[in-house]
Nucleic acid binder design. Structure first.
Lengths: 196, 196
DNA sequence: GGATATTGATTGAACGTTCATTCAAACACA
DNA sequence: TGTGTTTGAATGAACGTTCAATCAATATCC
């Protein structure tokens, strides 16, 4: 039974402060001193709740991943199993959900991608996400296309989602969410219109 | 070694050592000491030639950009001005040139993208690159499509190039260069087949 | 029910490490 | 000898972690 700050409350507060710190200073300059100051607590508390800075980083990535999963799942609920266009659109829209396209989240994703190339813990998480997007799409396309084309379609739409997202993240004026969604949807429609 | 550390030779040697260091250790752990050791020189030499670590980083990004520009330009030489498919394919192929798809370059690009969000010098360089890819493509598509569709086509193909590249960079087994090129080309063909 | 013990959250200064930079000295060549 | 190159130890700043001390909220006991 926690006393004042409930355990999950503190953890979420620190994760949010971490996202803000990465957004404001970049991962390299997101020191625990700055993160703690943004959360209005002292430095020691981070090690207390996450066992160290890297624990907080992993928890932050898990947090973003969970929000992405939720954003997609919510949009797919209630859709008919035959409604391939509906499911594909839901997957596309979920990937451009506001939880994934705000500046702090985009900046953090970019930093985590780079870090994941040498941090096994982050690499595993990133890989789960990459495969989930691909196989979700592939599963839908297979309902309408032969396996080879379905694979190509899934690779293409997944790549387009990530690429449009990336270019939006790097663009100084920010990301054009509706434009991205429209182009990704158009690409999916192209593949689904293929006759086999 | 004697004087024969020609100024440009030394600089290129240090840039190459920097790429290797970022590949092996990641940007955060690519310290001056490690870079210098990989180049077989002492730490002070980096400040002597680049004025500091950030100077070396900027020079390294310029180096990658120059190689990308060369890879595209070479492939476009000798093509007819009417050959839209040829130019688009050259742009696509150049972006997946071996200078851009080796592990060290991919890792370094990722790190630089993340860093560029808070380093004005890197941000300018990154932006030049982003716009160049887009406007090169747009210029070609305009020869065949009305302006609105040409813009969409360019955004789509540019996004697909970057997205496929990104997913390849993050994939543990490495990037499938020919697969990426094929999918990007297919997407370009789709847009060019549109009737207006 | 009031006093006391227990628990777990929280603090922040101290510690040891690591890093980029600097610069006087050494060096190589013309 | 003079000039530009190279060295590497010294410097000081900054970082993450640790931990004894403090505090607030419950639990236990008489």
């Amino acid at each position: 039974m926690p006393h004042h700050g409930s355990l999950n409350g503190r953890r979420e507060q620190l994760i949010r402060a971490n996202l803000t710190a990465i957004h404001q200073y970049g991962l390299a300059d997101a020191t625990i001193a700055r993160i703690a100051r943004l959360a209005g607590v002292s430095t020691g508390i981070i090690s207390h709740y996450f066992g160290g800075k890297s624990g907080l980083m992993e928890a932050t990535m898990r947090h973003l991943l969970a929000e992405l999963g939720r954003a997609v799942t919510e949009r797919r609920q209630g859709l008919d199993a035959d409604d391939v266009e509906g499911h594909v659109d839901a997957i596309i829209d979920g990937n451009f959900d506001s939880t994934q396209t705000n500046r702090a989240a985009m900046r953090t994703w970019l930093e985590f991608w780079a870090s994941s190339m040498h941090q096994p813990a982050l690499q595993r998480l990133q890989r789960v996400n990459e495969r989930r997007l691909y196989s979700n799409l592939c599963h839908q396309f297979r309902k309408r296309l032969p396996p080879t084309q379905a694979r190509d379609a899934a690779r293409s739409v997944a790549g387009l989602i990530d690429g449009l997202w990336l270019r939006g993240a790097l663009h100084p004026d920010g990301i054009d969410i509706n434009g991205c969604r429209r182009l990704a949807r158009e690409n999916a429609r192209f593949w689904l219109a293929q006759t086999h």
